Each structure stands twice: as structure tokens, then as C-alpha cells.
Amino acid sequence: MEDYFEEQVFNGVNFTEQRLDKGEYNLCRFVNCSFSGVDLSYLVFSECVFENCDLSNARMNSSSWKEVQFNECKLLGLIFSDCNPFLIAMNFRGCQLNFSSFYQLNLKGSKFEQCSLHEVDFTETNLTGASFYQSDLSGAIFENTILEKSDFRSAQNYALDPELNKLKKAKFSMPEVVGLLHKLDIHIS
């Protein structure tokens, strides 16, 4: 039998040393916690908030993330594509997501605000209406990605191939919009 936790606050817990109980976490807050390398497989997080937590290299097989907010978290090398895709909904503010993968996930309307998204894999991800407010997308991979109505106006260092991605009504601004011409290997001055 799995445990059920509701409206609990976990503050400063090092889950690399203390076991995280298997079960469902609803409306919980995790503050200054370490999950680095921890196995989060099959856990359910619904309407939870993670603040200043380190989840780098955590295992996420079939874990569920429903309406979860990550603030100022370190989320390096996470394979979000291993998560349960049913009702997945996540938003990120001030997070480091470098080397993570969102391959084939449906993340409509997700917000990536002031995030570091270096080398993140968004291949075949549905990011319709997503926002990349002041985020750094150096080396991020967009291939067969749905980016319709997405907002890149204040994003930096992205390179998108308009022929390989759906960009209808996506928003861009100068000078970063030249990232759409990256594949042409031309210089604009």
C-alpha cells in the first residue's frame, strides 16, 4: 500500500540520505531539498511546488507530475520523457535544466521563465503556447517540435529550423530571431 501526503511542507530534507516514501504527494511543498540521483520512479506529484531543490540526475520512470511548479531548482540531466505523460503539466522559473530531455511530451502552455536550457532535447515535444521568457536555449534541440503560439521574444541563443518545426503564430523579437536562419550558415551584420 502506498502512502498519501497532502499539504505537507518538506524543508531542508536530504532525500539522498533519507528515503522518500513511495506514494502520492498532493499540494505539498519541497523547500531546499536534495533529490540528486534519487529514484523517483512511480511517485505521483500533484499541484506541488519545489523551491531551491536539487533533482539532478534523479530517475523518473513512470513518475507523474501534474500541475507542478519548480522555482530556482537544479534539474540537470533529467529524462522527463521517462515520466508518465498522462496529465503532465510543469512550469519552471529560474531553473537550471541543462542536458535534460522532454522528448515527445505534451507540454502545452508550459512556462520556462529565466531558465538555463543548454542542450535540452525538445524533439517531437508539443510546446504550443509555451513561454521561454528570458531563458537561455544554447544548443537546445528543436526537431519536429510544435511551437505554435510559443513566445521566444525575450529568449536567447536559440536555433530553430522553420522547416523542421511548427512555428505558426510563434512570437520572436530582434535580434535573436536570426536563430531561425541558423541552418543556412550565413552571417548577418
Rank of each mutant, 00 (worst) to 15 (best):
G12V: 13
L78K: 08
A140P: 13
S34F: 10
P85E: 10
E17C: 10
C83Y: 11
A170I: 02
R93Q: 12
Y133V: 10
Y25D: 06
E17M: 12
S56C: 04
S36L: 06
S56G: 10
M90K: 08
G12N: 08
L180K: 00
N157L: 04
F152G: 01
Q18H: 14
I188N: 06
L87R: 14
E7Y: 04
L105M: 04
S135I: 07
E7Q: 14
I186W: 03
C48M: 09
Y42L: 07
E124M: 14
R153N: 15
D185H: 08
D82R: 12
F102S: 05
K183E: 00
Y42A: 09
F99Y: 15
S41G: 15
I88Y: 09
D39M: 00
C53M: 05
N157G: 04
L147S: 00
H118C: 08
V68Y: 04
S41K: 08
C95P: 07
E72I: 05
E119R: 12
L27P: 01
Y42N: 11
V31C: 04
E113Q: 14
I88Q: 12
F10K: 00
S154D: 06
H187Q: 08
S62I: 06
C115H: 02
N57L: 12
G77W: 02
V31N: 08
L78Y: 06
A58Q: 05
S116K: 14
E51R: 15
L167P: 02
F99I: 07
K111W: 13
Y42T: 03
N91P: 02
M60A: 07
A89Y: 15
V9P: 06
Q134F: 08
V31W: 07
E119F: 15
R19S: 12
F132A: 05
I188L: 11
S131L: 07
K168S: 10
F112V: 04
F132D: 05
I88C: 10
H187Y: 08
S36E: 11
V49R: 11
N84Q: 03
V178K: 10
L43I: 14
R153W: 00
L107D: 13
P85Y: 13
T145F: 07
S64H: 07
E163D: 13
G23A: 03
S131K: 08
D161Y: 08
A170P: 03
G129I: 02
F99E: 15
S101L: 01
F172S: 01
F86L: 14
S189T: 12
F102Y: 08
L127F: 07
Q134P: 00
W65D: 03
E47V: 00
L180Y: 03
L75A: 08
S81T: 08
E119G: 00
H118K: 11
Y133K: 11
L87G: 10
F99T: 13
N144Y: 14
K183G: 11
K149L: 06
L167V: 04
E176K: 09
N14R: 15
G12S: 05
S131A: 14
L40H: 12
D54W: 04
N84P: 10
C48F: 10
A140Y: 02
Y103Q: 07
V44S: 09
